[in-house]
């Protein structure tokens, strides 16, 4: 160890991987419906795609978790995205490709991908 800067680098590099264990305050939450209906409709690849994108883009303050049935089984896989201080947005009939757009446009840049939302589908 030669300097505080070097120590800080280790800290920053590791922080993202331990942040999850702190009390959550800010940060975007992604919740994937993973009940039997969701899994049958392909929720696992959707979940994995979120993880992949978050990892690729170094989005340390995003939590990706799952929940049970969100309620509209015919529209599964469903995903809820909540940015801090904003309304929850529900996306339906998600696929791995759609995930890429949601991450890039909504999570990173704050623009909801309206055409994938439950409002557009109904």
């Amino acid at each position: 160890m030669k300097s505080l800067k070097e120590l800080e680098e280790i800290k920053q590099r590791t922080l993202d991987s331990v942040n999850l264990r702190k009390e959550r305050t800010g940060g975007t939450r992604v919740v994937v419906g993973m009940a039997t209906c969701g899994i049958a409709a392909g929720a696992r690849p959707v979940l994995l795609a979120f993880l992949e994108e978050v990892k690729k883009r170094n989005l340390g303050d995003v939590t990706v978790s799952q929940t049970g049935c969100i309620g509209v089984c015919r529209l599964e896989p469903m995903v809820e995205v909540t940015r801090p201080g904003e309304e929850k947005v529900t996306y339906v009939k998600m696929t791995a490709d759609k995930v890429k757009r949601v991450v890039a446009e909504h999570i990173v840049n704050g623009h909801v991908v309206t055409e994938y939302t439950i409002g557009a589908a109904e």
């Binding site: 505080l4 120590l7 280790i10 800290k11 590791t14 922080l15 331990v18």
Partner: peptide, 25 residues
């Protein structure tokens, strides 16, 4: 109960060894 005690990086992530650095420098 928060960090992996066998991983020095996790200790550093929670400000470990920063006090030593501060004192020495």
């Amino acid at each position: 109960g928060v960090i992996d005690p066998e991983n020095i990086d996790e200790y550093i992530a929670f400000d470990g060894y920063k006090a030593l650095g501060k004192v020495l420098l």
